[in-house]
Simulated assay, not measured.
Amino acid sequence: MTQRRESEELLENGELTVLGRIRSASNATFLCEASSGGDADGPTAHCVYKPVAGEQPLWDFPDGTLAGRELATYLVSAALGWNIVPHTVIRDGPAGPGMCQLWVDQPGDSLDEDTAQETLDLVDLCPADLLPAGYLPVLRAQDYAGEDVLLIHADDPRLRLMAVFDVLVNNADRKGGHILHSVDDEVFGVDHGLCLHVEDKLRTVLWGWAGKPIEDEVLQSVAGLVDELRGELADTLAEHITRAEVAALRDRARAMLEVPVMPTPDRRRPIPWPAF
């Protein structure tokens, strides 16, 4: 068994112990350790646990639960074969049923302060007249000191795939802080509670490819998703989101195949706030 699969099994069936609360989250969110129980030297896996009981009701996402939307978004990622969302389940925990998702270890967590200041994140800010090589501009703004800055993101194929994914799942909250660069050099997206609405709610910091064509290889995966949404996947998703939202997902995928071009930010509030 691979280490990843072992961690996934612990996430699904292990005993959860709360290590601490993640205070920056708007809903109750905990860092937990999943273990086999009874064996102090046994394998463990860290995870994020968001109990349904700790969710704040949202008037614009009234149906189902945020946990259900997070799981549904993971299932779409898995169906596409893109591995964008970390392994996610809904299960019982210390505060009742909730979403559990494998923790992503990031190299920046262990960098010293001087090194961290010299390293640009995948989504970052830079002086308005100094766009770094390998980055794309999103918008020009002013920082708290009144200096002109650019919101930028890396011109990275993994981010480009995430941008396509966000169009499909209609992500209303793709902030820079919801994009994680792992110690294994993988890129994951997290915090998908505001996804899969029937109305157009796309808000993202990943606008660098607006108006650009979508690659054929990516479209092949999208076509496969359309096929899967004719069968069991649609029924599975309907356990967590409405049938209308499942149909809207299928319609967005079909529309992407018909017009394989990334959308442009010509809608109201195209970027989530805060952006990080």
Rank of each mutant, 00 (worst) to 15 (best):
A40S: 15
N83W: 05
D60Q: 10
L229Q: 09
E55N: 05
V198S: 12
W273R: 14
A234F: 00
L102P: 04
L10N: 03
E228L: 11
L102M: 08
A79Y: 06
V169S: 01
L125M: 08
L80G: 01
G42S: 09
Q56V: 13
I84F: 15
P274E: 13
E186L: 11
R174E: 03
E55M: 00
T264N: 07
V259Q: 13
T17H: 12
V164Y: 00
G176P: 01
D166P: 10
A247F: 03
L80R: 08
L219P: 00
E70Y: 01
I214M: 04
L237W: 05
C32Q: 04
T44E: 09
W273P: 00
T236W: 09
R21K: 10
P157W: 07
C47V: 06
T242F: 08
H87R: 06
E245Y: 03
V183D: 06
H181Q: 10
L131W: 01
P137N: 13
P263F: 05
G224I: 10
D216K: 15
D39M: 12
T44M: 05
G177D: 02
V205Q: 03
L19V: 10
A154P: 00
G224K: 09
G93R: 05
P213V: 07
R23D: 12
E33R: 15
T119G: 03
P62I: 04
P263D: 07
M1E: 09
W82A: 14
E55D: 04
E199D: 15
R160G: 06
A253C: 03
A255C: 07
F165A: 12
T236K: 15
T204E: 06
R5A: 11
D124Q: 04
E215C: 01
A223T: 04
E199P: 05
L194E: 04
P127V: 15
D109S: 14
V226L: 08
S7I: 10
D216R: 15
F188Y: 14
L122G: 04
F30G: 00
E232C: 06
V18Y: 12
D266Q: 10
D266S: 05
M262V: 10
D185N: 15
D121M: 04
P137Q: 11
A145H: 12
I152N: 06
E8Y: 08
G176C: 09
A253V: 00
L180R: 03
R4Y: 07
D251I: 04
T119N: 12
G211Q: 09
Q106P: 07
A223M: 01
A116V: 13
I90H: 02
G176T: 07
I152R: 05
A34H: 12
D41T: 13
D121P: 01
A133L: 13
L180D: 00
D105K: 08
P137L: 15
L31W: 01
M262A: 07
E12Y: 14
W273A: 02
A172L: 10
F165W: 03
E12M: 14
G37E: 09
V123F: 00
T264R: 14
P213A: 08
D41E: 14
D166E: 13
V218Q: 14
E70S: 02
S7E: 13
D251G: 03
